[in-house]
């Protein structure tokens, strides 16, 4: 069965994924809104940048983060001057890495949902003298709700499923950076296959339930005629 270490890894993973999802919604929603509405020349490059983690191997992200967040890297020097120390081998280092790594999974569904609404609902609200702020909160955001839900689920699930980047910058510290995927890897490496099976089965079950919930939700919503997705 699951050991205390396994449970600690599960708890840490849930904590990490929750933190990352909240941060991603805060960062990703305005970004998606901007990408959906802008005609700026920066639209193409920014879209490409946001999508980069989809194609880059985790090793590339892990390697650069280790270099940039280390004591001789620009981010590392910044965090040191701010008195925060360096980020590799810390929980917040993993948070930063996961936010970058899972960004496209959050931005894309929200962006699609906003683009699918078109400009009309917001314009109609404007004729009723709703301010920009008001329109965002009472028209655009509620209409984009299914997309935001998809984004949260995907962002959360993708962070739970992260491995390569964590292995490269985590340092395998119990309760701090030893997440479930790394714990499973450790079990396999140490030839503790029974333990690896238990944790892996938990992961398979969890992932299946999350994706099933997502698809059921999508079916229901698309029956209502709200197109969105990734």
């Amino acid at each position: 069965m699951l050991t205390d270490d396994d449970l600690a890894a599960i708890w840490l993973t849930l904590r990490l994924a929750t933190t990352v999802t909240i941060l991603l919604l805060i960062i990703g929603t305005p970004l998606a809104l901007w990408l959906a509405n802008t005609r700026s020349l920066a639209k193409g490059p920014v879209s490409a940048l946001v999508a980069l983690p989809l194609v880059l191997p985790p090793t590339v992200i892990g390697f650069y983060l280790l270099m940039f967040m280390g004591p001789s890297g620009p981010i590392g020097q910044l965090t040191e001057t701010l008195g925060l120390g360096t980020l590799p081998f810390t929980f917040w280092g993993l948070v930063v890495a996961s936010v970058i790594y899972s960004l496209p999974f959050v931005v894309q569904p929200i962006r699609n949902a906003i683009e699918a609404q078109g400009a009309r609902p917001s314009e109609v609200a404007a004729t009723l003298r709703a301010s920009l702020w008001d329109r965002f909160w009472s028209v655009t955001l509620p209409l984009a709700k299914p997309g935001i839900l998809t984004a949260s689920v995907l962002g959360f699930a993708h962070t739970v499923g992260e491995f390569g980047v964590v292995l490269m910058i985590g340092g395998n510290i119990p309760g701090e950076t030893r997440v479930v995927s790394v714990q499973i890897y450790d079990h396999v490496e140490a030839l503790e296959y029974a333990q690896a099976h238990w944790l892996s089965a938990v992961m398979v079950g969890f992932s299946f339930v999350v994706l099933l919930a997502l698809y059921l939700l999508q079916q229901r919503k698309s029956a209502l005629g709200t197109p969105y997705g990734i």
Binding site: M67, G70, P71, S72, T86, G171, N172, I173
Partner: peptide
């Protein structure tokens, strides 16, 4: 203060990159 390398190469790399 411990950080674990997956193997001795990664341990070396943690120190060589100045992260440890």
């Amino acid at each position: 203060h411990w950080v674990h390398g997956e193997n001795i190469s990664q341990t070396y790399q943690f120190v060589a990159s100045g992260n440890a």
